[in-house]
Amino acid sequence: MNIFRLTGDLSHLAAIIILLLKIWKSRSCAGISGKSQVLFALVFTTRYLDLLTSFISLYNTTMKVIYIGCSYATVYLIYMKLKATYDGNHDTFRVEFLIVPVGGLAFLVNHDFSPLEILWTFSIYLESVAILPQLFMISKTGEAETITTHYLFFLGLYRALYLINWIWRFYFEGFFDMIAIVAGVVQTILYCDFFYLYVTKVLKGKKLSLPA
């Protein structure tokens, strides 16, 4: 465990909690892509099946349980409890265009052709693109609430910190996981355009809105 990985994990946790609290406190999930949240719930479910097979540390287990729990709570709020506020008309990204190629790739490029390992690989690939429905929704409506942009910022920050973590681990532990690294780079790149808008607009106190 190094400082980049820890802050990366905490940043990820912050993103998840910010989103959940925003929805809970405002009793509204307007502007949030339910599809992205379902994809994230699927990501955590398929990745953390090793909760049942191997114990790594109390920290590891606790964080996994919190991530899974929060992601399902978010999906529950969006599709059940606060369904009336869900902006489904603008959440029109076709997720099968992500799931099918990602599933195929997980079968073709993995560390080991076993069920758990393929599901883990699937979750890594899926996570790298799971935010696309949310970004698509923002590009469609042309704006995002400031709190939503904070959520996206912490989610992107988590990824950027993990990249530094992998450089660290390569130098000091000789560890590298090519699948995680390539997917992580792709994921971070997807956030770059958003980061630019966040720094130039949101941090200067303006609302994030895109030119028509």
């Binding site: 990985r5 090793d50 191997s54 790594i56 590891n60 964080m63 996994k64 560390h111 080991d112």
Partner: peptide, 10 residues
């Protein structure tokens, strides 16, 4: 071959 990959990252 029985080998389980340990993925220690989140």
């Amino acid at each position: 071959r029985e080998f389980t990959y340990i993925h220690d990252e989140l």
